[in-house]
């Protein structure tokens, strides 16, 4: 049986317009996520990962952030053109989002239980009675490993890892079809990271939620994700299954660079091996392939013509290096 597509993004362009300049944050992203699938999105800061996630939620900053091109369907809903009322119904119920910094993601003046309860009140009012909702709050708190008795406490009484558990509880309370996790473990220390990730994986399996995991950490991706997308300067330069990306032979030079930058604990190296140069300025993107000025395999064509997607089975790469193979 073929799996149903939950999220479909085609040729998405997002810009941030400020008085000084236009920031091209997302430049033609194609993505899809099946039901129950986990997609990892990896890339440097400023690659457009968070912007993509915010667009899926319909939460781009008003006035400043604009979708200029493309289509985005979430569970059949056209998010870009849907009215605010419909988006409100969708947020928290169909899709929910976990933000990067748990320290600031919770309202400091509202008890954590009430913050979880709120999302139920907003979406399940006609289906559940108040006592059922309270029971659900207790249940979901226990699921994320917090004693239900602590629901009357305020966020400042919790540690960072605990707060992130509360944020996850809020996100999962209505059993959404899609969970967007924007660097959920970046702000946590390593031992807590492992716990939180393990918990997210278990919960995801239990609830059969699809997930988009945004991260810098290739190790995390390998542990949790089914498929991986590598983002660079607002584009998905390579996407495929975890096997394609981690063990396949053909890669986008940027992906190769990313993996090359991971220090190998077994070898003696004096220095790290970074990718030379910096991310291009998103207000003035280079012509042709956006990676060409940092690419070790740069050819003449890379400087002028933007590369097309080259697909082989489940694996897609956006690079001129593989143009010829397709022609063959």
């Amino acid at each position: 049986m073929e799996k149903k597509k939950l999220l479909e993004i085609r040729n998405l362009h997002v810009q941030y317009k400020t008085d000084e300049a236009i920031v091209h944050a997302v430049n033609g992203v194609d993505l899809c996520v099946d039901e129950g699938e986990t997609l990892g999105l990896v890339g440097e800061t400023g690659a457009g990962k968070t912007t993509t996630a915010l667009t899926i939620m319909g939460l781009l900053p008003e006035r400043v952030g604009q979708v200029t091109e493309g289509e985005l369907y979430l569970n059949g809903v056209d998010v870009i053109h849907a009215p605010e009322g419909q988006l409100k119904m969708m947020r928290g119920a169909t899709a929910s989002m976990i933000f990067q910094d748990p320290m600031t993601s919770l309202n400091p003046v509202i008890p954590v239980g009430d913050q979880i309860l709120e999302v139920l009140e907003l979406h399940k009012k006609d289906k559940m009675s108040h006592s059922e909702m309270e029971a659900r709050v207790d249940q979901i708190l226990e699921m994320v490993g917090i004693p239900a008795a602590r629901k009357t406490e305020y966020p400042h009484q919790f540690s960072g890892g605990m707060k992130q558990r509360v944020v996850i509880a809020i996100a999962l309370a209505c059993e959404p079809l899609l969970l967007l996790a924007d660097e959920p473990t970046t702000a946590l220390d390593v031992t807590i990271q492992a716990q939180v990730l393990e918990m997210m994986r278990t919960l995801k399996k239990e609830l059969n939620t699809a997930m988009v995991l945004i991260t810098h950490d290739l190790g995390v991706v390998a542990r949790i994700c089914d498929r991986v997308g590598i983002m660079y300067a607002g584009e998905v330069v390579e996407i495929g299954t975890v096997e394609d990306i981690y063990t396949g032979e053909k890669h986008h030079p940027y992906t190769t660079g990313l993996f090359g930058a991971i220090p190998d604990l077994t070898k003696k190296t004096r220095r790290l091996n970074p990718i030379d140069g910096l991310m291009p300025d998103p207000t003035r993107l280079p012509s042709g392939c956006k990676f060409h000025d940092r690419c070790p395999h740069c050819m003449e064509i890379c400087k002028t013509a933007p590369p097309q997607d080259i697909t082989e089975g489940s694996h897609t790469i956006k690079c001129h290096l593989y143009d010829k193979e397709v022609q063959k």
């Binding site: 939460l59 969708m90 947020r91 989002m97 910094d101 600031t104 309202n107 979406h123």
Partner: peptide
């Protein structure tokens, strides 16, 4: 502009609810 207001928006709360329940006290 705080993160927790964005969290509230991500829950599907209306602007009115966000202003009165989440932002005003802070």
């Amino acid at each position: 502009r705080q993160d927790y207001i964005r969290t509230a928006r991500a829950k599907g709360a209306s602007t009115r609810r966000i202003v009165f329940k989440h932002a005003l006290r802070n």
